[in-house]
Computed example of a mutant assay.
Amino acid sequence: MTRAVVFAYHNVGARCLRVLLAHGVDVALVVTHQDSPTENIWFERAADVAKEYGIPVAMPEDPNTPEFIARLQALAPDFLFSFYYRLMLKPALLALPIRGGYNMHGSLLPKYRGRVPVNWAVLHGERETGATLHRMVEKPDAGEIVAQQAVPILPDDTAGDVFHKVTLAAEMALDRVLPDLLAGSAPHVMPDLATGSYFGGRKPEDGQIDWSQPAAAVHNLIRAVAPPYPGAFFELGDHRIVVTRSLSQPVSRGLAGQPVLYADESHLFARCGDGGVVKILALELDGKAIPPISLPARLGQNPIPLV
């Protein structure tokens, strides 16, 4: 029986762990993270899946210490798998498994290497992304590609919508290639990193809306950080407004001139720097969700200047 140590977190970690078990892989240990008290835990926990199946769980602050590496070495794994684990596995750790270490990444590599690939893909208005299983090497997301599965990004999908698709894509890609990987016959294709891109992490403050940007860019930001992520926001006087859902508009409409928020009989719109318009479907005023159409009355202005 093939033995593996699995580094896993989030929905992708939980689902891919289930795939390994479905294929009869002996998972000797699941390495995961302590949940952060400041994070919205909206996803399935890999630790819970491990406990369901009676698999030991470890939550080291740093898996690359000599002591933890010695613990893994004693397990003599054939494979290491990393499924949305958030820490880099260094060369000494990657050298342990007899048959290599493999990572599931949430993009179509070599595009969107690095952190939060789904959010970056939505922010940049991509119409497609997916999941990639690749061999782990010292350089992040740079090893040979073993399997990929693409999914569409629709114009009004949020990052949360796309992440659910990517989770399924990861499950499909792993389930399809795993028999060949275990048999030693899976293809390994080196990516051309020059055709791809690398991105770092994002912070909540990166969600601040610049209404002077084109409407497409504003809409992409709103959906890239929409709940369960922190949300796109702006400030008017003493008020903080978080826009949690929007729709793109096919044509420009509304008031000419500087960017404004304005309401018609039933909807709230934002006219952006290029004259394009975004329909605001949901927002929060000072931490409380309110109907968007009520915002002008709350603030005593219609239209509401944005710059």
Rank of each mutant, 00 (worst) to 15 (best):
C272L: 11
Y229K: 00
A142C: 14
G184W: 04
S82I: 09
A232M: 06
A50W: 02
L21N: 06
L20Y: 05
M136C: 00
A159Y: 12
P305Q: 03
R71S: 10
F234G: 02
G54M: 06
L181R: 02
L96W: 02
N103Q: 08
L123N: 05
V57T: 08
V118E: 08
R240E: 11
Q301R: 15
G184C: 11
S252M: 14
H239D: 11
L21H: 09
Q213C: 02
E39N: 06
D206G: 09
A170S: 14
S212G: 12
E205K: 12
K139C: 00
M136F: 05
A170Y: 07
Q34R: 15
A95G: 09
T32R: 03
S248I: 09
L21Q: 13
W211F: 15
P56I: 00
A256N: 15
G106C: 08
A121R: 09
P63G: 04
M190S: 13
G24C: 05
E126G: 00
L75G: 01
M172A: 14
V49Q: 12
V27C: 05
K165H: 13
I290V: 15
E235H: 08
Q213F: 02
Y112G: 04
K165S: 11
A50Y: 03
A74P: 09
R99V: 00
Y53G: 04
Y112M: 08
L29M: 04
V137G: 12
L247R: 15
A28F: 01
A76W: 04
H10I: 00
P56A: 01
I293M: 10
N119K: 03
V30R: 01
V260P: 05
R45E: 12
P303R: 01
T32Y: 10
P155L: 02
H124K: 15
L255E: 15
R71G: 00
L236S: 13
D286E: 05
G257L: 07
L181E: 04
L109D: 07
A92G: 05
P187S: 10
H239R: 14
R176V: 00
V31K: 02
P140W: 14
H267Y: 14
T32E: 05
T38S: 14
V5A: 02
G231S: 03
G130D: 08
A263G: 13
A282P: 14
F233E: 01
M136W: 10
P140E: 14
A142W: 15
Q34K: 15
D48P: 02
G100Y: 08
W211K: 05
E44Y: 01
F199I: 03
P60H: 07
R115N: 10
L80N: 02
T32Q: 06
P91V: 04
D274H: 01
